[in-house]
Amino acid sequence: MSASDLRQKAWSAALIVLFFVAWELFCVMTGMSDLVLPRPSEVFVTLYQKFPLLWPHILQTLATTMIGFVLGVWLGVLLGAVIGVSKTAYDTAYPLLVGFSSIPKVAVVPIFVLWFGSGSVPAVLTALSICFFPIVVNIATGLATTEPELEDVLKALGASKLDILWNVGLPRTMPFFFASLKVAISYAFVGAVLSETVASNRGIGNVMMTASSNFNVPLVFAGLFVLAGLGVALYVIFSLIEGRVTGWATRKNDLIAT
């Protein structure tokens, strides 16, 4: 890591600290009631004290998110591959997909609850339905943009569609795929929490709903902090994997030809 990278990271950290300090000062100076906006220090204390209580809910939210995400990735890759390989399928299926993805997922949760009752299942399904779309689009685009010349070279060799997909199409989509994974994991998380907020008795979303109806505002904010922390952690994990797998696509910054 270079010095400029370190400086960049230091500035990012400083900005976060500054944000909380400004918030704290704002609350102290205006004498804000903690029923409206609690001080961040107060939130952190609540978070620390209530952590044993929060932990099972964190696990619950993580579990539903990850299950929904993994299912969403499978579905997304499968649909994306089918749509991306065939131009006809691409044109035919696209309007339906766009229509489906345009539905606000809050509107879908009650339907899932109606079908499967409240709890984990609607949370998983909401996470899935909200996160698979960016994956479909990215995989399909990656496949559809394979250079026609290269396809000709391989077809002239007698390569089957599957050969081309396996050797060229799929590796080509990897940068698109991982870019979409970063988006999808955040979406899945939003979906799971959304569903928990509406219909569940477990999970961070549910904790926040309960806390807010009890006017335990610091706990609501503690829930928010947890969500933000988890979201960042998941994003970072997938960025790291992306860097490892698809370094060739972002080489310009650090690898110089010799």
Binding site: A156, L157, T246, W248, A249
Partner: peptide, 18 residues
């Protein structure tokens, strides 16, 4: 009837970047 397995090259070298 079947693939010809000829060698082809175009103006664009299309080397796979990975």
């Amino acid at each position: 009837a079947r693939a010809l397995r000829v060698g082809m090259a175009f103006q664009n070298p299309t080397m796979l970047p990975w």
